[in-house]
Simulated assay, not measured.
Amino acid sequence: MVARVNKKINMAIVGYGYIGKYWEKAILKDNRMNIAGIYDTSINASDSAGHKFYKTFEHLLNDPEINTCIICTPTDNHYTTAMEILSYGKNIVVEKPTVLNMEEYNKLLEKARENHALVFNAFHFVYSPEIAWFRTSIPDLHKEYGKIGSFYSYFSDPYFIDGELKNKALSLLGSWVDSGSNILSMLYSIFDSIRLDSLTFGDSYAGTFSDLFSTASMKFNDSNKDAGFGHTVTNWVSNSSFKYTDFTFPETDSRIRLNHSGLTVTISNDTGSKLLFSAEEENHLLAHYIGLEAAVYEALYSGKGNEEYGKMVYNTMYSPLNGDDANA
């Protein structure tokens, strides 16, 4: 039996940096979960915004009031931190990527089972308003425009400029692991099955997991009988931040664009272009975390994680890097 939470969910934020503060804003806005403490080796108690501050990790782990930890540490520290927290029987919510390979992920799930804890993979991009709208609108879109035949995702971030990696990207590992996990988690929230056919990388800045550019091709299908192919591009060298995904509906020669940067959805066909959806949120990343925080609350309250969802995403993402079949 897992650690279902039947009372106020007391969260500890492990890593109170850029992303940790977005979690804080989302939790305080919703007010269904409680920030019961902060742990971060790089700050002092005076920097914890009035939250309880743990001087050592052991103090946090041994606090019976804490039933769930949100892990916002640097990416290469996610796995070891998660394993230690799980060994104390506490649920974990882990920023993507949760792990750096499938061996780590399988060990993580085994540790969670042994200690009756939940694992929630925090794929924040899935909860961007335009993606959420598109996902819930698919039945109506099918009726009006037919089945989805293909997609194209382009994710650009200004992380490598003038031969130098910018500070915000120092712990992100590379364009495929960072943006690829966003793309794949989005696609798995729409389609039942994805098969990665090819994955190629451009230049790298430091070896393994440090690609600056990637292209991938894949096939998809789902229970709605959507089936087709898609291509993705992740780009850290464009000197701009721009993200979108196009879905084509060949039966009506229509294209629906999800503008992830503008939080809008538009359709284009032989009758012209039309705006289908526009979100009101000004802070795009906060909009992601507000949706994510609500999903985490519902999952923890019902005693469920998203372990299998994470397995699909990470198996597809990492298997090609290990020379394995991404769909085994």
Rank of each mutant, 00 (worst) to 15 (best):
A26V: 11
A26G: 09
I27Y: 04
L28I: 14
L28S: 06
K29W: 02
K29T: 15
K29C: 02
K29L: 10
K29I: 06
D30C: 03
N31P: 07
R32Q: 15
R32M: 09
N34E: 14
I35L: 14
A36R: 02
A36C: 14
S42F: 13
N44G: 14
A45L: 08
A45Q: 15
A45G: 15
S46W: 08
D47I: 08
A49L: 15
A49P: 12
A49S: 15
G50T: 12
H51W: 08
H51K: 04
H51Y: 14
F53L: 11
F53M: 07
Y54W: 08
K55P: 12
K55F: 04
T56E: 13
F57D: 04
E58L: 14
E58I: 11
L61Y: 13
L61T: 12
N62G: 10
N62R: 12
D63E: 10
I66F: 04
N67Y: 00
T68D: 08
I70L: 09
I70H: 01
I70A: 02
P74Y: 01
P74V: 01
P74M: 00
T75S: 00
D76K: 13
N77Q: 15
T80C: 06
T81C: 12
T81W: 03
E84Y: 07
I85A: 03
L86N: 11
Y88P: 11
Y88W: 14
Y88A: 10
G89P: 10
G89A: 00
K90L: 01
K90D: 02
I92H: 02
I92L: 00
I92V: 15
V94S: 09
E95I: 04
E95R: 01
E95N: 08
E95Y: 02
K96C: 13
P97I: 08
V99Q: 02
V99N: 03
L100E: 00
L100I: 15
M102I: 15
M102S: 02
E103A: 08
E103K: 12
Y105E: 06
Y105R: 01
N106P: 09
K107T: 10
K107L: 05
L108I: 13
L108T: 11
E110W: 12
K111D: 06
K111S: 15
A112K: 07
A112C: 05
A112S: 13
E114R: 07
E114K: 13
H116W: 05
A117W: 09
A117L: 11
A117I: 09
L118V: 03
L118D: 03
L118T: 02
V119P: 05
F120G: 09
F120E: 06
F120S: 04
F120N: 06
N121K: 12
N121V: 06
N121I: 10
N121L: 08
F123A: 03
V126N: 03
V126Y: 07
Y127K: 00
S128K: 07
S128I: 01
S128E: 15
E130M: 04
E130C: 05
E130H: 05
I131V: 14
A132Y: 10
A132S: 13
